[in-house]
């Protein structure tokens, strides 16, 4: 199966700063591929190179089997892009926003109009089609940006943090729409720093930091491989517990007031610990992508 996107040794430098440092990955047809990482990891720079916004410094990039350097326009006409900032056209109403974008993709006026109407309905925005872009709520704006990215019936949809800053209802609405699109066979590439979003939408993903790829794989595999099956969280761990985990050579992370114990086989360990060592409270939960993410990228703040 030919990949939709093939990135080989992709690199982007701004002067001395290496924003993306020699990364390689590929995205297959029909899959939703996630790029995860803390702020400043190089996620946005990576996808900007893929939709031709930023020229790459080095490496090779093939989209739809075409060399991006040689066929940029042909590639751009087949992808839909949701940029991070909401850059709807404030001088136009919603319907016009979509129509004008259709014209940029060389649709005829009539095609653009029909497509715009259909997309407003799909995004449940048809009742606001005469509204100006700035009159919309955050959730509506995002749906509108998503609608605009679909105006050319793209074969690949690129989303840069599609739900950042949205309330839970709006996020779920965006996810539902994306899942519908995925079912129709659309290939999706997205960046996010929400782990629940990545677990829900992504078939495969990579986690990057400081411009490099840390891991790549299916979410469930990554969880099993890096943090195991379950997590035991202990509040105010005692010195007895610390001695116990050391003696048993368990994988732990100790934050002083809180300890995280990674467990890969069965729940005997939880019963033992909760009986003997839990003064302030213990919690057994499934390991999640967030545990993988924090384990790999560390817990210090990124600002």
């Amino acid at each position: 199966m030919q990949a939709i996107i093939t990135a080989k040794n992709l690199t982007k430098r701004y002067g001395d700063l290496v924003a993306v440092d020699d990364i390689s990955f590929n995205v297959l047809p029909g899959e939703c591929y996630g790029i995860l990482g803390p702020n400043g990891a190089g996620k946005t720079t990576t996808i900007r190179m893929i939709y031709g916004f930023s020229p790459m410094t080095a490496g090779e990039l093939t989209v739809f089997g075409l060399d991006l350097r040689k066929h940029l326009c042909a590639i751009k006409s087949r992808i839909g892009v949701c940029q991070q900032e909401n850059n709807l056209d404030p001088d136009l109403n919603l319907l016009q926003n979509l129509e004008v974008f259709g014209l940029f993709f060389n649709l005829t006026g009539r095609q653009a109009h029909e497509k715009a109407q259909a997309l407003l309905e799909f995004m449940s925005l048809d009742h606001r089609k005469d509204a100006k872009a700035l009159e919309l709520s955050g959730g509506m704006t995002r749906r509108m940006v998503l609608a605009r990215a679909l105006i050319n019936d793209p074969e690949l949809l690129i989303l840069d943090e599609p739900t950042t800053g949205l309330d839970p209802q709006s996020r779920h609405q965006v996810w539902e729409r994306l899942e519908e699109l995925k079912k129709k066979g659309l290939t999706v590439l997205l960046t996010t720093h929400y782990m629940d979003e990545a677990s829900r939408l992504c078939d495969r993903l990579l986690i990057m930091d400081h411009g490099r790829i840390l891991v790549e794989g299916r979410p469930a595999d990554l969880i099993r491989q890096y943090v195991g099956h379950d997590i035991i969280e202990v509040a105010e761990p005692s010195s007895d517990l610390r001695a116990y985990v050391k003696a048993r050579q368990l994988q732990v992370e100790d934050f002083g007031h809180r300890m995280i114990i990674y467990e890969s086989n069965g729940s005997n360990l939880y019963q033992e610990i909760s009986k003997k060592y839990c003064q302030e409270g213990c919690l057994l939960r499934m390991a999640s992508l967030e545990d993988v993410f924090l384990k790999l990228t560390g817990r210090e703040l990124r600002e």
């Binding site: 916004f53 326009c73 751009k76 940029q83 974008f101 940029f104």
Partner: peptide
Amino acid sequence: YQKTFDAMMATPLT
């Protein structure tokens, strides 16, 4: 302010 050109640059326009 409006980032209109940024949006255009994500289309086939150069």
